[in-house]
Design a protein around this nucleic acid. Structure first.
Length: 419
DNA sequence: TCTGGGGTCCTAGGACCC
DNA sequence: TCTGGGGTCCTAGGACCC
């Protein structure tokens, strides 16, 4: 039985409103009611007062200021975001163990099993909103429906600081007048393609020919969107999701495509990724690098190894080889604007192999080489020092300096998924 | 105004195996 | 001499989400 056939609307989607900006306004009352942006060079989050002017997350700070001359930039109290985000999710946990956290400020919950304790889902949603407001001082919007997709749309419609319950039987009517861009999986590209065939609402999407959709969007996407448009959403809640990859990237502005730029940057990125892998004992087999040139064209290159790796130096070396390959194939590009490293094909867990220098078997390091062992020791030493004295205690000197910190590390960490 | 950083999923072609 | 089909893995690129 899929959830769309269930009889009652018990799925909640809870979403803190303009989260980072709301936290800043909470902590500094003088900011309340004013257009503010978290960030500087780039807007990480905007308050509703700023959104009115068209300010959006990801927007360059300069452009935001043009749109909204009185925009106030605030520094970003990242540890407070983490604390308050966790606290809001904990309120959901108090009602049901069936909570799927999507990000720092957003989660699904299924309250089917706890209505006998706390009342019907809409009352539970009201209670959650009251508690988050009273205990944390933050606005949170909630959508309630039979499926995740509809609950998510309902919470978007409910914003800011609202509650929308979609009762069974009213779902299609609710859905079909809304724009396709509210659907999960419809971004700018898909919206533009749909507009080409005259589809702008979810209802129009639902009534359009299935074959045409598949031709337009591909078999998987066409099928999926058609199903969602008729409120058929097979997705269940997943309470224990683990990441399938881990990566790090760094925007560089415009830098020459030379070793003195990319070698230290890659070492810094490899350090960030590999130390996370080691911390959770999840080495990975596939290394992917991404190089973006000055014109924003991006190229990726990847390699899948026989043995999974989690050593910083090994990851940095492999990444460097891949980047050299990219640059050799694009000699006309003289400047790069971003470098990224990602590791996928992660092992479930490698507790048993903790004592072995993973990756040592790779042909890049000759068997029996002392180099691999020495590096393994260095990683472990660095990990231990950081455990005791903090992340900044030790690093890769040149790399640490070279890495243009356009975004603070604390902000990066907020976006990291559980490995 | 030249655009951050962390992820997921899908597609398409080619290699390779049965 | 030319020919089949399915499955799996890998690589590169793109769209999307928060």
């Amino acid at each position: 039985m899929t959830q769309s056939q269930a009889t009652a609307a018990t799925i909640l989607h809870a979403d803190l409103d303009a989260f980072y900006a709301s936290v800043e306004q909470l902590l500094d009352p003088s900011l309340r009611g004013k257009p503010i942006a978290v960030g500087g060079g780039v807007v990480l989050a905007a308050s509703y007062e700023a959104k009115v002017f068209g300010v959006r997350g990801g927007m360059p700070g300069r452009k935001a200021r043009e749109l909204c001359p009185h925009l106030i930039f605030v520094g970003g109290r990242f540890s407070e975001y983490q604390r308050l985000g966790d606290a809001a999710i904990k309120v959901l946990d108090d009602f049901t163990p069936l909570v799927e956290r999507i990000s720092i400020d957003e989660a699904f919950a299924d309250v089917a099993g706890c209505t006998h304790l706390f009342g019907p889902p809409d009352e539970i949603a009201r209670a959650i909103r009251r508690r988050v407001k009273a205990e944390l001082g933050l606005p949170i919007s909630i959508g309630v429906a039979r499926t995740k997709h509809l609950a998510k749309i309902a919470s978007q419609v409910a914003k800011p600081d609202g509650l929308v319950v979609v009762e069974p039987g009213t779902e299609i009517a609710f859905l079909h007048d809304l724009p396709v861009s509210l659907m999960w999986g419809v971004g700018p590209a898909t919206r533009a393609r749909l507009a080409e065939i005259g589809v702008e609402t979810i209802g129009q999407l639902a009534r359009s020919h299935g074959g045409a959709l598949k031709r337009l969007l591909g078999p998987a996407a066409g099928e999926k969107l058609a199903a969602l448009a008729w409120n058929r959403d097979p997705r269940r809640l997943e309470t224990h999701r683990r990441a399938h990859s881990a990566g790090a990237q760094s925007a560089l502005g415009r830098k020459p495509a030379e070793a003195r730029v990319f070698v230290p940057t890659l070492l810094h990125l490899a350090d960030r990724v590999a130390s996370r892998l080691r911390a959770k004992a999840r080495p990975g087999r596939t290394v992917t690098v991404r190089v973006r040139f000055a014109d924003m064209r991006a190229v990726t290159r990847s390699v899948t190894l026989e043995q999974p790796i989690q050593a910083t130096a090994m990851l940095a070396e492999i990444a460097e080889e891949l980047v050299r390959g990219v640059l050799a194939a694009n000699r006309h590009e003289r400047e790069i604007s971003l470098l990224a490293i990602s590791v996928s094909h992660l092992e479930e867990s490698a507790e048993l192999q903790l004592e072995l220098p993973l990756g040592l078997a790779d042909e890049r390091l000759k068997p029996g080489s002392r180099k691999g062992l020495a590096r393994f020791g260095a990683d472990r030493a660095i990990d231990r020092i950081r455990q005791r004295f903090g992340k900044e205690a030790v690093g890769y000197g040149a790399a640490a300096l070279e890495a243009a910190r356009s975004v603070p590390d604390e902000f990066r960490e907020l976006a990291e998924k559980e490995l």
